[in-house]
Simulated assay, not measured.
Amino acid sequence: MLDGYKEQVGAANRQINSIRGTAFGPLAGPGNTCWRRVFTDIVEDVLADGERRRVDLGWDCDTVREVLAEHAASLDEVSEPRLVEWDLWDSNVMVRDGKIACVIDHERAFFGDPLIEAGFASTQMAAAYGDSTHFMRGYGHPPLTETETESVRRRLYCLHLALIMVIEIVYRGHTDITQYDWARERLTEVMALLGRTRR
């Protein structure tokens, strides 16, 4: 049952990503023809939010910026803007009679690289996000390999996600630090995947 559901989510996500845009970025604009510029600006905005509230990431923000810059060339492979839901987690999927009835919570949607979708996170961090096999099968995407730029991009997107999950708790006024601690571990994990470990 769960496997079939994951395949349905993959298929639905592919349908969403089939919609082409004219530029990368927010649905209402402004857009940019360069995905590298758009994504690095998105990460910079998140880091600036963290610095503004002095959030302890466990990493210096400039070190995170260095890691992003070291791998940013992988983003140049993305040339066609696609509609990205980004927040397509189980809590945003409504199921009726064993089938997906609708997807909700679209305020984070934008035009970007489909590999930034939540369903692909586990291709790099399976222990944290679960097995991606059934999502990938439903989506119809071949496995990512260690040597392809797809894997590097997906790791950068995991980096972005971890930063958001660490920093947002301050802005949302969370008193339970469970998410904060978990996300900091994910940040350290993905920094290692991108070749940076603490000395």
Score class of each variant (00 low, 15 high):
191 M>S: 03
199 R>P: 15
132 S>A: 15
103 V>R: 08
18 S>V: 04
155 R>T: 02
117 E>A: 00
134 H>L: 02
166 V>Y: 00
120 F>V: 01
4 G>D: 13
138 G>W: 13
198 R>F: 10
108 R>T: 08
76 D>S: 10
134 H>D: 13
101 A>I: 06
193 L>F: 07
72 A>R: 11
173 G>E: 07
46 V>Y: 03
154 R>M: 11
140 G>Y: 08
93 V>R: 12
147 T>R: 13
92 N>A: 03
174 H>I: 00
37 R>I: 10
43 V>N: 02
36 R>C: 00
180 Y>N: 02
191 M>C: 06
23 A>Y: 10
189 E>C: 04
100 I>D: 07
84 V>E: 04
197 T>R: 14
152 V>A: 03
130 G>V: 06
3 D>C: 08
175 T>A: 06
18 S>K: 09
119 G>Y: 04
75 L>K: 13
145 T>G: 14
120 F>S: 01
70 E>W: 07
105 D>W: 06
170 V>S: 09
30 P>M: 10
17 N>T: 01
13 N>L: 02
124 Q>N: 13
121 A>D: 02
111 F>W: 11
61 C>D: 10
147 T>K: 10
164 I>T: 13
22 T>E: 15
15 Q>S: 13
162 A>L: 01
163 L>N: 06
194 L>P: 05
176 D>S: 11
44 E>D: 15
42 I>C: 12
142 P>V: 12
